[in-house]
Design a protein around this nucleic acid. Structure first.
Lengths: 328, 328
DNA sequence: TAAATAAATTAAACCGGTTTTATTTTACGC
DNA sequence: GCGTAAAATAAAACCGGTTTAATTTATTTA
């Protein structure tokens, strides 16, 4: 049988309370006894059981995270930051891929708080979390009600930057491929694009719907190629879509950026590795992660009287997929 | 305060034992009382607390999973299958991205079992899990000791298939870009390639080291382009590497598959979307996930006297990135 | 209908920690 | 050396479930 706190106490010749105090780093233990307890713990390979501790303390030290997919290097970066930062504060992160079956994780009080990173059933999750009074944070979320904490990137501003970059290079025939309108980020990116174009006194070459996937870019480019009329620049709502555009154009013998410029959004890992390396709008993944943890921990310690609303600024990263239009 | 089992019992006019029996689907409860209990639970919005249950039962109903990265659609597919299948059996999955800080999750008895999906610190994890007597399964693992359960794909056979596909098309100058030799899968793939070439009486055009990343393919192709001598076909140890090769070649004006054929390994999501769509060796992700869950549950129920060793066969998926060499 | 048996319920102990309250030990000032 | 305050320890209750053993209730059989 595994060692319990009683075994440690007995062997150290002390009470369980003293051992518990050592476990919790309380100052009221004589240094001599503290060392003795730690020594015995090592001897017995003792580790406190999370279940017993959670039951007594009423908290689990576990933060849950729900997300729609794992196959996304931007998510990966956000998660890594969150995981490390939580660990430094004594909390652990548990990830769940969103599916109809998963809400049990917080129904059973297994986590102290939840971070929702663009999950699929967000509305249902929020309702459930409200009912169970579990604090949560939304990252990049569709519908941030005023009563919940959320972290969003200023997608509107990012799109304006993207469009202005192309405009500054001299482009006039600029197309935009959107993301799924379900996401607020998609809608904001489109709005920013349209705004910048209007400011420049230009009409978009085209605005076509996409799905944040390589296939979206392929399809859009194919259609333009088939129609025999290409834009001089494309602003794709995300990097995968941008890569699809470039891939289809190159396969048809069109050079990027010589014939057509392409800019993406997110700065996924693949963006810098692709050829040509992708000009894009960088989302501050580490920043997002850091903010998420700070807000969550403040909320758990009751130090956050009002919900936090954080808006972060994205950043233009100029690489090799954009250039002046051919004529100039 | 949240409702406890005592509140439910009192309101239903029954004992806590009866309520507990209902929770655990035991047959010794009168149907009338069972319904009454369920009704009260709904009224009070009662949900049993995982910590209390875990403490009493000595099990958590949680399976942990360690992995090195999330940014991989093959992992994504495996995880999805595992998650759904576990949920159907009343277990939950908790994911951890491998880092130096994370082993606490199983040190504190938070999980009943662990699935290691190519994590980074695999040896350290295995030692820790052995010490804590927590059952675990290795997927695609470097060093499967005879005493542990593992699921591997027959990478050797997959590579032979890949090489034979190219050979059957008439290729003779075939290059291979490996994965990191740290992984057993990399070594097996290289071994399979060399074997098939030897069988055909041919020497490899080249065997160059890679890292399972787009950049690896880019670099290899760049070097061949710079040297002015290209293979007629490339077998990349994974799809990302293959895409790197194609991207670099296309950027240099070399057509795939007309000038050079390229085959990958894994069948990542991007493989079918890329242009040209990638010929590759498909890893049976769903199969792997299913096996992992079945073995894990059998182990937990003590129905698995000896460790399971499962070897699954990969499958050739012919798409558009391979063709006969130009001369033929 | 009574006795025997099976089914359902209850009370109490337990899982392994933490926390509160009461008590003992130690340290300090005079 | 004594009284008192502060520090450390001990005993017991608690967190919210499950499980065992004992008891009551319902059902079957003679």
């Amino acid at each position: 049988m595994k060692a319990s706190i009683y075994d440690v106490a007995k062997r150290a010749g002390l009470s369980v309370v003293t051992v518990s105090r050592v476990l919790n780093n309380e100052s009221t233990v004589r240094e001599k006894n503290r060392l003795k307890v730690l020594e015995v713990m090592r001897e017995l390979d003792y580790h406190p059981k999370a279940a017993a501790r959670s039951l007594a303390k009423g908290k689990t030290n576990l933060i849950g995270m729900m997300l729609s997919t794992l196959d996304d290097s931007f998510f990966d970066a956000v998660i890594k930051e969150i995981s490390d930062r939580l660990a430094a504060k004594g909390y652990y992160l548990t990830l769940s891929v969103d599916s109809d079956l998963s809400p049990m994780l917080f129904q059973e009080d297994r986590v102290d708080g939840v971070i929702l990173l663009s999950p699929i059933n967000e509305i249902a999750h929020m309702r459930e979390l409200d009912k169970r009074k579990i604090p949560y944070i939304l990252i990049d979320h569709q519908h941030p009600a005023p009563s919940v904490s959320s972290i969003v990137v200023d997608n509107y501003a990012g799109s304006v930057m993207a469009a202005n970059h192309l405009l500054a290079l001299g482009h006039k025939d600029i197309a935009h491929i959107t993301g799924p309108p379900l996401f607020l980020s998609s809608r904001e990116r489109e709005r920013g694009f349209r705004h910048a174009m209007r400011e420049a006194g230009l009409a978009p070459f085209a605005v076509v719907p996409g799905e944040f996937q390589i296939a979206s870019g392929l399809e859009a480019a194919d259609r333009w190629l088939a129609a025999g009329r290409l834009p001089t620049a494309v602003f794709a709502a995300d990097d995968y879509t941008a890569i699809g555009v470039i891939t289809a154009l190159q396969a048809a013998g069109v050079r990027v950026p010589r014939d057509v410029s392409v800019i993406g959004f997110d700065d996924q890992v693949i963006a810098s590795q692709y050829r040509p390396a992708l000009t894009t709008i960088r989302q501050p993944a580490e920043h997002i992660g850091r903010q998420a943890v700070d807000i969550m921990l403040a909320t758990l310690q009751g130090e956050l009287p009002t919900p936090a609303k954080v808006e972060l600024k994205p950043e233009l990263v100029v690489r090799a997929s954009t250039a002046k239009p051919r004529g100039e």
